[in-house]
């Protein structure tokens, strides 16, 4: 193989074909079908995930510990699920209102976005417009290394360093209490650091795809370099940048291990980032690692939460793909 890489201009000649045509055709067709099988596996995975999650959700709404619910009860559980302010699965008289979990996820995602979007976008602009080629060669792989760190290590970093040694002293200085070891702020910050590389590299690709003539025009009209970047290049790449933002936020919403380590798993109906409260993903982890009986309502609530999570991220991804497609069409 390596010889082919070393001299790409002279490809290896194909070995002589000593088969009759019909057999060759058969093999070609067989290979195509095998490859098609590989590709269609992804469809099977998607369908299986959706089917499993929806089946569990159906059981969650229709049964109370294997006892079928009457329609009125189903309706009230449905209403409670989407509007209830209490989530205490696992306790007696459990209530299943997803708003606290949704707020937990939202809080982490907002903080993560506040950390990652400005830093990521600034990095992208700097790397594509300002940095010397040498700087870029060093900085891009380093950022990619940041993306390769396992999420559980981010969570450990939050719970062992960020909260007790950075956030707690800082907030104590201002006379404020912060949840130690669990708080949403630390979770949001580490998730933000985690998604910086994603924002930076996707946005940089988008910015670099902007044609040179646009920059030339702005410079010719007397704009400074900063004005050119901010008012011409970035708006021109806006769809790609938006797509990177959406994808990064979707990743933050689905983030699991870091969040369940940093934020804890107590469901509370609040948006205060100084407290630690459960997100959708950390609730799933709590149910999965606890000894909840399979088939009980508590267990099935996992599927309902996973369904909300799945469709939220799916919608975000579809929107991002749509936005990305638009920018590809404009400049290529």
């Amino acid at each position: 193989m390596s010889t082919a890489v070393a001299s790409p201009v002279v490809p290896q000649p194909a070995p002589p074909v000593r088969m009759n045509r019909s057999r060759q055709k058969l093999i070609e067709a067989a290979i195509e079908w095998v490859l098609f099988g590989c590709a269609s596996l992804s469809i099977i995975i998607t369908v299986a995930i959706a089917a499993l999650v929806l089946t569990g959700t159906y059981e969650f709404f229709m049964y109370q510990d294997e006892r079928p619910l009457a329609w009125g009860e189903v309706w009230s559980r449905f209403v409670q699920f989407f509007t209830g302010q209490h989530w205490n699965a696992g306790f007696a008289n459990a209530e299943y209102g997803i708003l606290p979990l949704l707020f937990g996820t939202l809080c982490v995602a907002l903080i993560a976005a506040a950390v990652a979007l400005p830093i990521g976008l600034t990095t992208a602009i700097y790397l594509s417009e300002y940095a010397s080629p040498r700087m870029r060669v060093i900085a891009k792989p380093t950022l990619e290394l940041l993306a390769g760190i396992p999420t559980v290590v981010y969570g450990f970093f939050a719970v062992a360093f960020l909260t007790p040694h950075v956030l707690a002293p800082v907030f104590a200085f201002f006379g404020m209490q912060i949840g130690n070891p669990y708080n949403q702020l630390a979770g949001g910050i580490v998730v933000g650091i985690m998604i910086i590389p994603m924002v930076a590299s996707l946005s940089e690709d988008a910015i670099r795809a902007v044609p040179r003539s646009l920059r030339d025009g702005a410079i010719a009209l007397g704009a400074t370099k900063f004005e050119t970047s901010l008012k011409v290049t970035v708006p021109a790449a806006l769809s790609g940048i938006t797509a990177s933002f959406i994808l990064a936020i979707s990743r933050a919403i689905g983030e699991t291990m870091a969040v369940s380590l940093a934020c804890g798993d107590t469901a509370r109906f609040t948006l205060n980032p100084l407290e630690g409260f459960a997100t959708m993903t950390s609730f799933i982890v709590r149910i999965a690692k606890g000894d909840v009986r399979v088939g009980s309502t508590d267990y099935n609530s996992l599927f309902a939460v996973a369904a909300v999570l799945f469709f939220m991220t799916l919608c975000l991804n579809i929107v991002a793909q749509k936005v990305l497609k638009r920018y590809r069409m404009v400049y290529q």
Partner: peptide
């Protein structure tokens, strides 16, 4: 085309959901 769109979306599905599968 469908498979392509599907794979792009699959890349964004939260990992914990794969655990359910």
């Amino acid at each position: 085309g469908i498979i392509q769109i599907n794979i792009n979306n699959l890349a964004g599905v939260p990992s914990v959901v794969y655990g359910i599968l």
